[in-house]
Design a protein around this nucleic acid. Structure first.
Lengths: 240, 240
DNA sequence: AATAGATTTGGGTCTGTACCTATCTATTCC
DNA sequence: GGAATAGATAGGTACAGACCCAAATCTATT
């Protein structure tokens, strides 16, 4: 691929798109050519190359290491989801051991709201209980396309793995997450699993994750004990 | 103020800091000098000036307008808080009219957790009920340093104003917000105001806002009806 | 064989220059 | 008076060259 000099689209924008593509297509997975090499490859000046790369660094797609080179930034899904998901770390800070137990894994028919959100007819459903030490803290229900679910079900899910599996083992390229946080009351079933009273307050987090192409990857609905779980977010005026 | 050429701190970083200072000190409130003027003022090249400005544009402190100039970006507090606070807009989208009613405004002694968070002994406390059409939706409790509270209490707070007042009238330069979202149960008092049953699920949002110097500005604790209110957040891998 | 020093490679900073397009204003010509 | 045009101003793009720091590697001396 090469740049179109007659096009009115700035060269650094064109180059940025090309590099981005090559990264997401897996052509570059680690180290990129040096800035000077890219100059020669695309017949542009170093500042143009640098402008393209700067963009991608800003968007956290690339990382620069002085003296070494420019690298594809490998951010785990938890890195960017982490800004929200934080409270499981808090549990660790409190000196408690986080854990999880798989209580269900099956293919199901999908209908209602779940069908609207996911766009699926059938889904693979995983149900896990989350623990802090031995205290049940929340119930997580994960829904995946059947193909993906089948693959996932071959792993041992009695751990904190899910997202790591998606990324590292199954090479799913997650991209965007929409999250909604609300409150509700525990059903009888919830209550039993969480060792709380039926009707007690729970905090409900729903999350839909899509990949780079906008395709559905996962829907999660989690019910947490209100007395054990909260979400923390820090916002800053200049989003440094 | 001028740049230190002997210093090992890059010129564009030094310049950035100077500009940032001047903005936050109110020296620049609208239009900045042109890039070429800044070149002459600080004896640096245009690209260095541009680098400094680019940084600030990225952090949403400045805005560039081709053919016009570079301007201080005037973002209201709701612009950046908005990424979370969203559901009051949802109510508007549902065709309902948002409203508020002040039910208390007084100076109080502060203790316990509130004292820890705010670092105050006394505070001014405002209590408001939020409505969607005529349905009570949430109770907001705002706590301010007494001086600020006194000023605020002179305005008509039976509206959606608070943050606009802080910014436009009182010129408070808010900067950072820490927000925590959890669930809880309605107290008898809550229940009465919200027209729900005692013990019903509510969603609790606590927010602490500090200014540029890290000084405390506001603490808010809001109780929303779980069936009327939720928080939505969209996260993206490359935070474009 | 070990280590101090030079070399190479790579990003970081900075200058100067040139020309582009967007905006606004003042002037000129119907 | 109103439309077309020419400047002036401001940011946007792009190039070339120079020199600085960081990291890794090679090399020569101890």
């Amino acid at each position: 691929m090469s740049l179109d000099y007659t096009n009115s689209i700035p060269l650094h924008v064109q180059l940025k798109k090309i590099l981005e593509q090559q990264i997401y297509n897996g052509y570059y997975t680690e180290k990129l050519p040096s800035e000077r090499e890219l100059m020669d490859e695309y017949y542009v000046s170093r500042s143009t190359v640098r402008q393209s790369i700067e963009q991608l660094v800003r968007e956290r797609v690339l990382e620069r290491k002085p003296g070494k080179g420019t690298f594809v930034a490998i951010r785990t899904i938890n890195d960017w989801l982490g800004s929200l998901h934080s409270t499981s770390e808090n549990i660790e800070k409190m000196g408690m051991a986080p854990g999880a137990k798989l209580v269900a894994s099956q293919e199901i028919e999908v209908f209602g709201r779940l069908k609207d959100v996911t766009g699926l007819d059938k889904a693979h459903h995983f149900k896990r209980v989350r623990y802090a030490d031995d205290i049940p803290m929340g119930i997580e229900r994960h829904y995946y396309p059947v193909g993906l679910g089948k693959k996932l079900s071959q792993y041992n899910l009695d751990q904190e793995a899910f997202y790591e599996l998606l990324e590292k083992e199954l090479k799913v390229k997650t991209f965007q997450a929409e999250q909604e946080i609300k409150a509700g009351a525990a059903t009888r079933n919830d209550a039993k699993l969480l060792h709380i009273l039926e009707g007690a307050s729970i905090i409900i987090a729903e999350r839909k994750i899509t990949d780079i192409h906008g395709d559905f990857v996962e829907f999660e609905r989690a019910h947490y004990r209100a007395d054990m779980y909260s979400f923390k977010i820090t916002l800053s005026r200049n989003s440094k």
